[in-house]
Amino acid sequence: MERMNGEPKALRNVLYWGLPVLAIGLIAIGWIAFSGSNPDLMPSPAAVWSRFIKTFTKPIAKTTLIGHAWASLKRVLLALMAAWAFGISFGILIGWNKKARAFFGSIFEVIRPIPPIAWIPIIIMWFGIGEFPKILLVFIGTFVPLVINTSTGIEMVDRINIQVGQIFGGNSSQILKDIVIPTALPSIFAGIRTSVSSGWTTVLAAEMLGANAGLGSLVTRGWQGSDLSLVMVAVITIAVIGALLSVILQKLEKVVCPWNH
């Protein structure tokens, strides 16, 4: 079709490519204007860029920016793998089995509203400030959304789909595997997406408390050393990696749940 909604197709393409560029452009202009008039509060883009280059020529704590990003990412990925394994299984268990829900449900409801960073003092007291407590903290932050999304997805399975399995003589485990889990997959995937973003947020909080490497440690270091350019470099890196993870997950969802456009 040549025209949709009264706008020629070419114009629409330009518009929908152009608008995001415009938004970023406006932020850049705002940044330049603000940093120009308040250089103490906000470093200029040029200053941030040169600080960015410097993270490679003069590594911080003997680690380049890439090393710091990888340190954070590694913690998140390790915690996520554990959270996916336990969170999805636990979500399926309490979503599918009424007795398990009665037993674990109330405990989970109590633990659920506690923000992950509220665990920090307890975790530091128990496990110190090494690698494990950071990963544990990220695990806690990612486990909760996975369990909620998975169990809700499992509970919301259409009765008629389960009946289809029963009519064809499927046993309980076949119905769970062939009907219930696939129905819940989009919802499980929503949980995975939330877990990745909350994991990425939690790791920075964990690192800001004390770490030799990691983007969170860069933020703290820049903040304590009044090196706002370094803070900006770390923040922008965090944003870019977060956005990349989100894009990767979107693509992955299309592969895993192709029926769910």
Partner: peptide
């Protein structure tokens, strides 16, 4: 006996499995 016999059912509502 649904385990032994082959009883098949077409529901009134659409019941195709959307992920297949």
């Amino acid at each position: 006996d649904p385990k032994k016999h082959n009883i098949s059912f077409v529901f009134q509502e659409p019941s195709a499995l959307p992920w297949l």
